[in-house]
């Protein structure tokens, strides 16, 4: 880890930035130099933003997403449908679904997917919180909206098994051809899945 006592603040900042995903030493150095060359106000504002994020953001006590206000905006919105919960892996997945404007229920964020090979088991996800929530409020339907990757499928299957005794309806988001996609340019896994999950025309 980073030596906090490193006397050179420039090296320290570079070292911190390289801890972020997708940022190597080159990019970290470039960002650091950019910050140094710019206005001091920007650097201070950036530091303040980081501090605020660390101090003020917590997990929503209902849906476990990142929020400043507890419960979060969605959980405290009285106009939403309480009887349907959409289960997602990460907070940013909520934004993706909200952008569609087609879902008006509640959410729950797992904060990851099951991955025993990386040491991530059920107890490392917000599954316990989800089950507690389901016992407290009557729910009609749970939509499992983890991605159609093998990890996403495994996590959905695991949660579905846990929900069986509760008697709620459990649905899974569909996978297949992308809208506007050309069949001939699609990879065979996607087309295969689309064939598997085909539906009758009505």
């Amino acid at each position: 880890m980073i030596d906090a006592m490193d006397s050179d603040p420039i090296q320290r900042l570079i070292a911190h930035l390289t801890q972020l995903p997708g940022i190597g030493e080159k990019t970290a150095t470039r960002l650091t130099m950019h910050i140094l060359a710019g206005q001091k106000e920007f650097a201070r504002a950036l530091a303040k933003s980081l501090e605020d994020v660390a101090d003020q953001v917590r997990l929503c006590s209902q849906c476990c997403t990142f929020t400043v206000r507890d419960p979060c905006v969605i959980c405290s919105d009285d106009n939403r449908d309480d009887s349907i919960i959409c289960l997602v892996a990460r907070p940013q997945d909520i934004d993706a679904i909200e952008r569609t404007g087609q879902f008006h229920g509640r959410y729950h964020v797992l904060h990851g997917l099951l991955s025993p090979l990386d040491g991530i088991g059920p107890e490392d996800l917000k599954i316990g919180e989800f089950l507690t929530r389901l016992r407290q409020t009557p729910i009609k339907e749970v939509i499992l909206a983890t991605s159609p990757s093998i990890e996403g499928e495994a996590t959905a299957m695991y949660v579905a098994n846990l929900l069986k005794p509760l008697g709620v309806e459990v649905t899974r988001i569909a996978a297949g051809m992308p809208i506007g996609g050309e069949l001939e340019y699609s990879d065979s896994m996607t087309v295969g899945r689309a064939l598997q999950d085909r539906r009758a025309m009505r």
Binding site: P116, A154, M157, N161
Partner: peptide
């Protein structure tokens, strides 16, 4: 010893 998890992976 997590049989539930093993069952999920078995199905996949």
């Amino acid at each position: 010893k997590d049989v539930d998890l093993a069952e999920v992976y078995g199905r996949q």
